[in-house]
């Protein structure tokens, strides 16, 4: 009598190997805990390789991120790494931006070639963010070690800082140790909301660089605050996807969650041991890998010249 290692998932319409799903959840949860990103950009394609339809993979992943980010947010909250005030402002901006983004994508689709615009924007943005983060953190790591100071490019012109200071509704964000206009997180939250609605991603790995470079928040607070924000975004996505598209496979989500919540706990502890610059350089590496993967998919001839609607 052997223990069954597979489980049939009625919404996904396929059976999966339990250990493989737990392992996948654990690996992606680890990254999520370290960097504060949802990991959907990794999880969805890997689930598709296991025979889960793309739409179900993405929606169920959102459901598991709800659990993983609850666990991640709590541990970061205990470590004092969540700027709730900033998180809420970003969230409000994100909801407004997400709604605008959904309308924008409708207009783009009506104009035709929307997919093309989206993919190009994605590759350019990921490339830009990835390379910028990589070289910026490399520069500051070298500087910290006292080696050739690599003449770090002025990270953000002072005109930007002056403009930020001139904005109305300046307020303190004590947890992040910064003073900024309340409009800034609203604006950037909205921008990420628009982008993630258009691209169909959670936006964690766009939001993290925005917090670091645009909002000038310390890296450790960025990770906790990002998870806090991701939690609410994914609750919204789960309920919307379940009620409108019936694509949330709860059992799959629960299996992934078991793996990822544990992974996220270890991730948060690993992240705490790493320097801010190290975190940034590793995250930039992941962002660049995703960028190159997308670029490859755009350039290489696909095996089958068809795609299921709702997939990538």
């Amino acid at each position: 009598m052997s223990i069954p290692m597979t489980l049939y998932l009625p919404i996904a319409g396929n059976s999966v190997n339990i250990l493989a799903v737990l392992g996948l959840g654990g690996g992606v949860g680890l990254l999520s805990g370290i960097f504060g990103v949802g990991g959907g950009f990794l999880m969805t394609p890997l689930l598709m390789m296991m025979g889960i339809p793309a739409t179900v993979a993405a929606a169920s992943d959102s459901n598991q991120i709800v659990g993983a980010s609850t666990s991640g947010t709590l541990i970061h909250l205990r470590l004092g790494n969540v700027d709730i005030k900033m998180g809420i402002l970003l969230l409000i901006g994100g909801v407004i931006g997400g709604t605008l983004g959904v309308q924008l994508i409708k207009i783009l689709r009506a104009m035709g070639d929307a997919d093309f615009c989206i993919a190009i924007t994605y590759v350019l943005m990921l490339g830009g963010v990835g390379f910028y983060m990589f070289f910026e953190s490399l520069g500051s790591m070298r500087k910290a070690k006292g080696k050739s100071p690599a003449k770090a490019a002025p990270s953000g012109p002072s005109a930007y800082a002056r403009f930020m200071a001139a904005l109305p509704w300046q307020t303190d964000f004590p947890r992040s140790g910064i003073r900024q206009s309340a409009l800034t997180p609203l604006f950037f939250g909205g921008l990420v909301g628009v982008l993630s609605a258009i691209m169909g991603v959670g936006g964690g790995f766009i939001m993290v660089p925005v917090m670091v470079y645009m909002l000038r928040m310390p890296m450790h607070v960025v990770v906790g605050t990002s998870l806090f924000q991701v939690l609410f975004t994914c609750i919204n996505v789960t309920i919307m996807q379940a009620s409108q598209n019936h694509t949330v496979d709860f059992v799959l989500a629960l299996l992934l969650l078991l793996g990822s919540a544990i992974g996220a706990q270890f991730g948060a502890r690993i992240g705490r041991r790493l320097q801010g610059d190290q975190l940034k350089i590793y995250l930039s590496g992941i962002v660049l890998i995703v960028m190159f993967k997308m670029l490859y998919e755009l350039l290489a001839r696909p095996n089958v010249l068809l795609a299921a609607i709702g997939g990538h």
Partner: peptide, 24 residues
């Protein structure tokens, strides 16, 4: 999932949150 879709979505979120709390 098909007959009580919204309730299913809400429950899926709540159970995920509880799962995250328990593990934490």
């Amino acid at each position: 999932a098909f007959g009580h879709a919204t309730l299913y979505g809400v429950l899926a979120s709540i159970i995920a949150i509880l799962g995250g709390l328990v593990i934490s």
